[in-house]
Design a protein around this nucleic acid. Structure first.
Length: 465
RNA sequence: GGCCCCGUGGCAGAGUGGUUAUGCAAAGGACUGCAAAUCCUUGUACAUCGGUUCGAUACCGGUCGGGGCCUCCA
């Protein structure tokens, strides 16, 4: 099956051809670690996690290299650590730990390499020196600046050209720039600021260099896919592309550029100053990570996504239904078993069409319905086992439905005994036709968010809140 | 001013030049002591105005509405 992806560089959907099928290489821009991850950080993490799962499925687990960086050199970090009166190292260590924990909780697998900018200062200095030597960068006022006029292709990714916006530029430009579009490769730091010694004095790298240096170091001078949020197209990715292609003399840095759409929160623009944002950490205290993941995948990655509590509720409901189907089949004595019947993997085919995750989710519902119909009709044992297998197996591509059923429906097990005792009491009342008492007990369960299901043989329970 | 995206039934959200997903919610039915779960059925949606076409929600153009980016800001 051919994977098709929308390439921002070409502005169209294209069939993906890898440079090397034995080593498919992907780089995605990660977070700047000065604050807790929010849903806007989580979207690219989840989306590209699914892309990488699909690539590993197609090319083989060992034949994909996935790199996402962590930006731990940044003015925001400097400022935040001052505010909190802690060292930058303490701040970034804390935030990185939280980030990794939160991403794991929403099912994001660890990338193969997760380099930190501070670990690559040497390569960044070398990279900058290389650009100076090749005449693409110049030194002025203790800064090293990239000269955008040294390459004819500047603007090819964002389709943004100097002539178009220079007159309307709202931002004051550094007076010593040769051209307003030139950007910083290295800038001086004050003595009390984070910095490193370099041929141009004590200072720190500009924002864009880190990705060029780390991508080249880990993936080579050109690689397959470069991803990130749509806001990164300009200037970040445009500048990375300019630097890398100039430094190495290849026309391009990555063959395919993919960008995920923006996230709004409860219908409004996500804004830190207006306190309109959800951190993953907060959400996890109320909702399963899988519901967060499900919601993020229920909209196509290039579309804008509105992240809302009601959306989370529906995501949870849908997961309850899917897990409920597996649970029902298991309670009927079936186990997942792969049959010899070949079936088109509908999740994979949906993902191959530019990562159509919403369509992939409907494939899950389709199988669930087939299982339920088969269970209702009590026929075809092997078919039920086969469908169960497919539901669970296909879901792996999306990173869903891999949780333990008991954990999903019944929590940590602390209440099990008490609940079972109450159910026994209720069933005794039912047997005695004391339905008023039986319903009273069920109402109590309902108030606790526990749903009872009276089966033919026994009564089972699920937490639904 | 420049570049770009979006507007689908009560809600979420795919897709397609003609047969009109999927999920949630709602209504009816089967089942059940009552429920729940599940299955079945129902609702004829594609901002607006033109154009192309035998035929457009889908292609093109205008309009209206919403959103993003435009240089040290991630």
């Amino acid at each position: 099956m051919k994977l098709k992806i929308t390439n921002t560089l070409m502005r169209k959907k294209q069939v993906f051809h890898t440079i090397d099928p034995l080593n498919v290489r992907v780089y995605v821009c990660g977070p700047t670690v000065y604050d807790y991850a929010h849903v806007g950080n989580a979207r690219p993490a989840v989306v590209f996690d699914v892309l990488v799962r699909a690539l590993r499925h197609i090319y083989g687990n060992a034949h994909v290299t996935y790199v996402t960086n962590i930006t731990d050199v940044d003015d925001k970090i400097i400022n935040r650590s001052k505010e909190r009166c802690i060292t930058m190292e303490a701040l970034t260590k804390e935030i990185i730990n939280i980030y990794k924990t939160d991403m794991a909780a929403i099912g994001v697998k660890k990338p193969d390499v997760q380099p930190r900018a501070t670990e690559y200062i040497g390569p960044m200095i070398a990279f900058t020196q290389r650009l100076i030597n090749l005449g693409h960068a110049y030194i002025t006022n203790n800064h090293v600046l990239f000269n955008v006029r040294s390459t004819a292709n500047y603007g090819q990714l964002s389709h943004r050209y100097e002539k178009d916006f220079i007159a309307e530029s709202r931002i004051d430009v550094l007076s010593f720039k040769r051209n307003p579009s030139d950007f910083v490769l290295w800038k001086p730091s004050a003595n009390d600021q984070q910095g490193w010694d370099s041929p141009w004095g004590y200072g720190r790298p500009g924002w864009h260099v880190e990705c060029s240096a780390m991508a080249a170091d880990n993936l080579g001078e050109t690689f397959d896919i470069h991803g990130g949020g749509i806001d990164l197209i300009f200037p970040h990715h445009e500048n990375e592309l300019a630097q890398t292609s100039c430094a190495f003399g290849h026309g391009t840095m990555a063959n395919y550029w993919m960008h995920n759409g923006f996230v709004t929160v409860e219908g409004k623009v996500m804004s830190k100053s207006r306190h309109n944002f959800y951190t993953i950490r907060d959400l996890l205290s109320r909702w399963p990570g899988e519901a967060i993941r499900f919601l993020l995948l229920s909209t196509h990655y290039r579309q804008p996504l509105n992240f809302s509590k009601s959306g989370l509720y529906e995501a949870k409901t849908q997961l309850n239904k899917l897990y409920g189907t597996i649970n029902r089949a298991r309670e009927s004595g079936y186990t997942p078993q792969c049959s010899l019947v070949q079936d088109n993997n509908l999740v994979l085919s949906a993902l191959c069409d530019d990562l159509n995750t919403p369509l992939a989710l409907t494939a899950l519902h389709q199988i669930a319905r087939k299982i339920n119909i088969a269970l209702n009709n009590k026929v075809c044992d092997w078919e039920i086992s086969d469908l169960m297998y497919k539901l669970l197996d296909w879901s792996k591509l999306l990173g869903l439905l891999q949780s333990d059923l008991k954990a999903w429906f019944k929590g940590d097990g602390k209440e099990d005994e008490e609940i079972e005792a109450l159910i026994a009491a209720r069933n005794a009342a039912r047997k005695a036709h004391n339905f008023r008492e039986a319903d009273k007990i069920r109402d109590k369960f309902k108030a606790r968010g526990i749903k009872l299901e009276d089966g033919a043989a026994n009564t089972t329970w699920k937490k639904i809140k």
